[in-house]
Write a protein that binds this DNA or RNA. Structure first.
Lengths: 327, 327
DNA sequence: AGTCAATATGTGAACGATAACAAGTCAGAA
DNA sequence: TTCTGACTTGTTATCGTTCACATATTGACT
């Protein structure tokens, strides 16, 4: 920077101002500095900048996984919006594990992030402590907790699962099974199951053991599971999966096994990923406003940093029941 | 840090050493400092650290998109490996546009990244200049250029497309069409097309205009395109798509339109995403070693930073032709 | 002409850590 | 006993930028 200053015949302070508050300089000086800036190809040192200003232009975002178009859609929007505002996204992947979240958080706090974005509202004691002492705004995504840590943006996973279950009932299905990746730490997963159970109870349909299926991972093995399912007595006529990945796996597994969807077994998902509308038969699912969640999160972060935010501490982006061919 | 030092009755230098080179301290002092560290919940300031040491623990990675399991698989591996080594991943999304890449790069260079990871080997003049002056190792992913900027890890897109085209011919298909997202900036896209053309030429099959299809985006509209395709005269019997996303779109579009795959039209993809083996019929495709690319990239970055790397400047991770049901 | 406010630029300290070097301690060898 | 070198800890300067304040310049108003 002193090179630039020398070339323009000013001090570093003036160069610094040219970079951040150009309107505070006389047109003539600004011109000279801009020229020198261009000529030297100067790149400001953010480390020095954040050291002295006591805050960085870094926003930390921790997601359970990025290999899932539900989350990556949100990440993409977030990253784009933040970089438009001059902020950079430091990304971590927690694998749905709050202790990994804590470990990553510990590693990231050293950057003195301007803001943090987390998924869910279950965090370890130590994580909360780090968030406390950082003083930075924290946005929790993907559900609407009763007591957000700071601000939360999401949807009611409970209500969405409840509504979908009721909708399946409304379409004539009775023995509705529920399939889930079982993560007890995962509040979204827990809420969806609770919503399903609440609906079944309200409908007066007993949930037997074989109607709640916990699967270990992904879409690969769903075929076998679905084949067992249709053989159950009394007959199960619908399968509600807590994620689209699971639902597509089940659906394609069914097709492959010659099970007619929805005639032999209706299938519903959760997420409305792009694939959901493309598969044959197209998947009935819960639409999750993933782009909107990212947009809102970015907006709130920016407004919190400017001190202009005065919205509610919980923002419900809602959801939609999308009926397609599979149910 | 001075708090910690005071509490432990030492200087900040000793605390700094406890953090980075604990073996250089006496067990007694280390114990005291560790205790103080724990008690205060001290978090080192990375900005100060990188300012004085002239290099950060940040690795910048720029990907065309993250909403694609091919790339997100690599990102996930990368992020995990780097954070194990104490490095953090600053992620950017270029939208397949080298000028966006340049803009992001300009914004990121201020962090004085320890290393940079880019996709492809086409970059703007200004980008190259920034890379030059950074002095950091640069790893280019996803293809194997003749003249890598520094080190490249990938596969021969040309050869892979060539082999797949030959394989389709070997399986009895003759009039093989090629579908592509047209990005002239994208060397992977260009290489795959060239590989296809080279194979067709070697096979002595004329590539007519309607056999090279450029589509604007994604999987949504592929259905209509496929329907037109099978009506073409003389008949087209196979469709090779330059990405799995495209191929799955085409395949499901075909299924929906009642076109039998592979009897009426064979379909092949490129990427071997998880979905490829799940769709019905399962997709014949080119396996891309996406996890391996991420792992190798992380390894090379680390070895370059330690100064221990002495491997080749181009690493070919190879590819595989995976025959499934669709061709 | 003299005062004042507004505008434009400069000065010096500070941010929190580490590099390079200095200095103290101690055991064992000459 | 004295010297040597290994080991441990401390001292000082420094990284590149911005903050808070000081100073210079200008024009307008009394």
């Amino acid at each position: 920077m002193s090179d630039v200053a020398k070339m323009a015949g000013v001090t570093t302070m003036t160069v610094s101002r040219a970079l951040r508050t150009p309107e505070a300089l006389s047109p003539y000086t600004l011109e000279k500095v801009t020229e020198a800036l261009r000529e030297t190809g100067f790149v400001p040192n953010y480390a020095a900048r954040s050291l002295v200003s006591q805050r960085s232009q870094i926003v930390v975002a921790l997601f359970p996984t990025i290999m899932n178009s539900v989350f990556s859609g949100t990440i993409e929007v977030l990253s784009r919006q933040l970089s438009e505002q001059g902020y950079n996204l430091l990304l971590g992947e927690t694998s749905f594990d709050v202790t990994v979240e804590e470990k990553l958080l510990r590693g990231f706090m050293g950057w003195r992030p301007a803001a943090l974005i987390l998924v869910g509202s279950v965090h370890t004691e130590a994580s909360r402590h780090m968030l406390d002492s950082s003083g930075a705004p924290v946005v929790e995504l993907w559900n609407i907790p009763k007591e957000p840590y700071d601000v939360a943006v999401g949807l009611s996973n409970h209500d969405a699962a409840f509504e979908m279950t009721m909708a399946l009932h409304g379409w004539g299905y009775r023995r509705i099974a529920f399939m889930n990746l079982h993560y007890p730490q995962n509040d979204r997963s827990v809420d969806r199951r609770a919503g399903y159970r609440a609906a079944m109870q309200e409908l007066g349909i007993e949930v037997t053991l074989e109607m709640e299926i916990d699967v270990p991972f992904g879409m690969e093995r769903s075929g076998a599971i679905v084949r067992d399912l249709v053989k159950a007595q009394p007959r199960i006529d619908a399968l509600f999966c807590a994620s689209d990945t699971l639902a597509v796996g089940a659906l394609l597994g069914a097709v492959r096994a010659g099970i007619r969807v929805p005639d032999d077994l209706a299938i519903a998902g959760f997420g409305d990923v792009e694939l959901a509308s493309t598969v044959v038969p197209a998947l009935t699912t819960v639409r999750v406003p993933r782009a909107e969640i990212g947009r809102e999160a970015a907006r709130i972060v920016m407004e919190r940093l400017n001190g202009t935010y005065d919205g509610p501490s919980v923002i419900d982006c809602g959801f939609g029941i999308i009926r397609r061919e599979s149910a």
